[in-house]
Design a protein around this nucleic acid. Sequence first.
DNA 1: TTCCAGGAGAGAG
DNA 2: CTCTCTCATGGA
Length: 306
Amino acid sequence: MTQIRNVTDFSLKYTLESGQSFRWDRIDNAYYGVVEGQILKISQEGTTLHVESSTEEDEATFVPFLRHYLDIARDVPKILVGVSNDAYMHRAIERLWGMRILNQALWEIIASFIISQNNNVPRIRGIIRRLSERFGERLTFAAYVNYSFPSPETLATATEADLLACGTGYRANYLIDTARAIVSGEFSLTSLEQMSYTEAKQELMRRHGIGEKVADCICLFSLGHLAALPIDVWIKRIFETLYLRRRATHREIREFAHNYFGANVGYAQQYLFHYVHECPNWADAEHLSLIDEIPTVAVTCESLTD
DNA sequence: TTCCAGGAGAGAG
DNA sequence: CTCTCTCATGGA
């Protein structure tokens, strides 16, 4: 049992249930999931996190790893103050106080968000679970059983029929193509980790099945690039309804959001995204009145290159 | 039955 | 460059 104390401004629930990870199961008051080939059981009691692993861990490296994974090491309150530009954002941040953006394993996030395209969260979770059962390693922690996410090497040798049987649909070949590119060395994950946001996004979008939105998810949920802004149907709807008050293209939304929220727009995006899922009346008159004046942006251009 | 889901690619214009 | 259509799958 590892304990991490004095974890302030942190919510395990909002962090693990905000649609950025598909691998966590809530059982009683704890979360069980597979991270980097091991089962973790995490629970929060005030400002203390209780963590158990299915494998023996050296605390000297385990605690820093967890702090990075959960984004505890970052000064998130400072970031949130910086994006709390209006009463609506203020309410979302207050409602979801403590939610953090995870720093998840790169290959798993690449594959998971390739699967996520034109798909919904319960089905994404099901596909990932079946892929792991079929191709991953069996792991146990007490009565909890789960499977590691399959390696690129494993998926590189899988057939399209294998993946279709897991429910991937037309995304099967996207996964196989990217896995094979990693194995061949044509696509390097380690070099991707060294790149700036702009470079990494561009490199990711060269892969078949990774467009702008999925590339931004990978940059935000694995590579720690907080300038990334994944624009899905919800983020588009949110910005059109709350801020622009009209139909808008992705390019217009991106330009407004970067100018309005700045270099940490990724965090602003995550609070808006989860808030509207938690709050069905997110667009009623009372909520709209929180943004009475559509902000005119003074800053003309934020640097997007780290 | 049709619509929708943390979209992307191919083709047309 | 932008716009439109299609893609596999299952739940509402």
